[in-house]
Amino acid sequence: MTLSSEQAAAALEEIDRTERRTVRAAGYSIASPYLILWGLIWIAGYGACAMLPPERWGLPWLPLIAVGTLGSVALGMRPRPGRHEGGAVGFAQSMVMAFAVCMFIGAVYYLFRPTSPLPYLIFPSFVAGLAYVLAGAVARMQRFVAIGFGIFAVTLAGYAAAPQWSALWAAAGGAGLVLGGLWLRRA
């Protein structure tokens, strides 16, 4: 068997494409349970907000965030073949990113001081959607981009159509995360 340079180039391209696809599928598989976990927390938190007066919206979130953080730690500690210290580093990076996102949301509230309570509910969903879009674009993981746009679109469209149900639209964004997590599992 003798190969031309065109055939060799085509074979190398196929190797690259398959390797990229494999690495991406492994990334989706790792991310999937985290999305499902945080989607459920998101649904519970915003579902509770839908039933509580605005001055009590903070109440459900503290325990839910604690549950989500502990759950994420537990997921990160699951034994996975081939993983060494990378899991701990990845978790630390995720925590730093989550902290930065919270700081950003707080700073925007401080700067613009919304006059109605509804933007307080909706804005974090927009930021979360944007974060998924950016993460997907940077890591070339198109499904994250689709999930981010999905969250953003559902929340914005719901807010525009029926702002009085903003908490439920935000909860629908959480449902989008759960569905996204299930979708990643099938990647």
Partner: peptide, 24 residues
């Protein structure tokens, strides 16, 4: 070639399941 490329990319893992390899 595709099978070997996929398995080589996942060599740190405990193998790839048949169904996933089929999709890849």
């Amino acid at each position: 070639l595709k099978i070997m490329a996929a398995l080589h990319a996942a060599r740190a893992e405990e193998g790839i399941e048949f169904s996933r390899l089929k999709a890849l």
